Amino acid sequence: VTTYKLVINGKTLKGETTTKAVDAETAEKAFKQYANDNGVDAVWTYDDATKTFTVTEMV
């Protein structure tokens, strides 16, 4: 189990959160659900070296 981080650069929601998951795909599903629940529709990137997902909402 690995800890993954999500950085949110949204128009109305900004911040960071983490989740523990067995792999990046599982973490991504959890983070996308979190973003969807909070109304963030954005572009996703992932950095495997830092285990960090970044979501940037387009203006």
Rank of each mutant, 00 (worst) to 15 (best):
A27C: 03
Y34Q: 03
G15K: 13
W44F: 10
F31A: 01
K11H: 13
G10E: 03
E25I: 10
A27S: 01
V59W: 13
N9M: 13
Y34M: 07
Y34R: 03
A30G: 03
A35N: 04
T52S: 02
T50M: 05
T26Y: 04
T2Q: 11
T45N: 07
T18E: 09
Y46T: 00
D23P: 01
T50C: 03
I8L: 09
V7E: 03
V55Y: 06
D23R: 03
T3D: 05
D23Y: 03
Y34K: 03
D41I: 12
T45F: 09
A21L: 02
D47Q: 03
A24N: 04
T52P: 00
K11M: 12
N36A: 14
T50P: 00
W44A: 01
K11G: 14
K51S: 03
V43A: 06
M58L: 13
D37N: 09
T26M: 10
V1G: 09
Y34E: 02
T17E: 05
N36V: 14
K51N: 05
T52Q: 03
K29M: 10
Y34F: 12
E25A: 13
E16F: 14
T50N: 06
L13F: 15
K29G: 04
T3S: 05
D37A: 13
T54H: 07
D41Y: 12
A49W: 06
N36Q: 14
K20L: 14
T56L: 06
Y46H: 00
N9W: 13
T54Y: 13
D48E: 12
M58R: 12
A30M: 12
K29W: 07
G39P: 04
D37G: 09
T52C: 02
K32C: 05
T50R: 05
E57W: 12
K5F: 14
D23Q: 02
A49G: 07
E57L: 11
T52W: 01
K14Q: 11
D47F: 02
T26S: 12
G10A: 12
N36S: 14
N9R: 11
T26G: 06
T45C: 07
F53H: 00
A24V: 13
V43Q: 09
K32E: 03
T18P: 01
Y4W: 04
A42M: 14
